[in-house]
Structures are given as structure tokens and as C-alpha cells.
Simulated scan of single mutants.
Amino acid sequence: MPHIDCYFATMSPYTYLCGLRPAEIARKHGATITYKPLDIMALFARTGGVPPKDRHPNRQAYRLQDLERRARVAGLPLNVKPAFWPTNPAPSSFAIIAAQNTGADVGGLVHAITRACWAEDRDISQDDVIRACLESEGFDPALVDRDMMTSADTYAQNLEHAVLAGAFGAPFFITDTDARFWGEDRLTDLDMHLSGKI
């Protein structure tokens, strides 16, 4: 059975623009998927990336245009300058880890949390927002406070695993055969790879 590790950041717009497609691709190919939230700024620092605010103005301007185009392609609403960004991604990441540890599929939860930031102007660092996202996806809202030390350890480990596996941005998909796909716009390539077409 194929496996996909999905390294992502809850404050990443491109993670949001993936929608539910990673889970759909995994199901299509009978693959398992593990969602691995991480500290994207720490990943940038470790792998030569630059936070958006520190990029050259040309790159910043292109990013805004690209986000608008990718949102249209994905058919998803997007505020390119959300009210609560950047924000602390750890609390929402911990909740996703706790939910995944129940054995449930968390693809919908990842999308709900990123949508809250990028389409609904909600602060995903706040417990009430995270609880609402958990509840909307059928999870116990109390997961926001459950096993926080375990989740914090996993969150830190995800960063280390990402660096060792070759990831440098988000979302980043790595298969069990070490095929690597960076970005929402490479989901079609991931699908084709799992189909044996590329």
C-alpha cells in the first residue's frame, strides 16, 4: 500500500488551496496519508528559505498574483491579506496532531483550519476557533487541550523529519518511494506518479 507524508503549515495559503485533494488522491490510489504539521518559518531557516515579509518586492508581488490565480483554479475563496496572519500556528497544529492520534482522517480538519485563516478571517491561534473547526469536522472540541506535550513533541519531530526527508516548503508531499512534490500545484503530478504515469 503506498504511503504519503504531507508536511504542511496551518498558516500556509498553499496548504489551504489544496482543499481536500490530498485525501482524495490518497483514497483513489489506496494510499495512506499522514499529515505532519510543522513550523514553516523554522523550516525556511533550516533549508535556505526566506519568510514572505523578507522577500524581494518582486517576489512578494508575484506571490499575491499567484495566490489569486491558484485560488481561481482551485475554486476556493481566498483573502490574500487575511486579518490574522501571520499568527502562531502551534495551537492549531497540536489539535490536528491530537485528532490524527485518534486514528481518524484529518484531511477535512486541516482544510477547515486553513480555511478559517485564509477565507474566513479567523485567528487560528485561538482555542475557540480551533474548537469550532474540530466540531465542524466531527471531532471532540476538547482535543484542543488533549495530550499537548505529546503533540508538541510530534510537532518538533515533524520539523526534523521534514529536513531529513528533503522538504523545504509547504505543502510538501513525499511518498514511501521518496518521490517528492512541493506545492499545491504539484498535486496533479503526485496523482500521476501514483498512477504510474510519471
Rank of each mutant, 00 (worst) to 15 (best):
A162I: 03
D140A: 11
H161F: 10
D147T: 08
E137Y: 04
R146H: 14
T175H: 03
Y155C: 01
S151T: 08
G169V: 06
A167C: 11
L164R: 14
A162C: 06
A167W: 00
D140L: 03
D153W: 06
F172L: 00
A152H: 05
E137Q: 15
T175E: 09
M149Y: 14
Y155W: 15
A152D: 10
E137N: 10
A142N: 13
Q157G: 08
Q157I: 03
L159F: 08
P141A: 02
M149S: 15
S151H: 01
E137A: 11
E137P: 00
A156Y: 01
G169L: 07
E160M: 10
N158L: 06
S151N: 06
M148D: 12
P171V: 01
F172D: 09
G138V: 08
A162V: 04
L143Q: 05
F172A: 03
T150H: 12
E160T: 15
T150V: 11
A167S: 10
D140Q: 11
T175L: 07
V163K: 00
P141K: 01
V163R: 06
A165C: 11
T150S: 14
F168V: 06
S151C: 13
S151E: 10
L159H: 01
A162L: 07
D147E: 14
G138D: 05
T154W: 04
F173A: 11
A165D: 15
G138M: 07
F173W: 00
P141L: 05
M148W: 09
S151Q: 13
H161L: 13
P171L: 02
V144E: 01
P171Y: 00
N158R: 04
L164A: 15
T150G: 14
A170E: 10
L164K: 15
A142K: 12
A167E: 06
S151F: 00
F172H: 08
M148C: 14
R146L: 11
F172I: 00
L159K: 02
F172S: 04
D140F: 07
A152L: 09
E160R: 09
S151R: 04
A156F: 03
V163Q: 09
I174Y: 00
T154P: 05
M149F: 12
T154D: 11
A170Q: 03
N158C: 06
D140N: 14
G169E: 14
M149W: 14
D145G: 12
D145W: 08
F172P: 02
D145M: 09
A142P: 04
G169T: 11
F139E: 00
A165P: 05
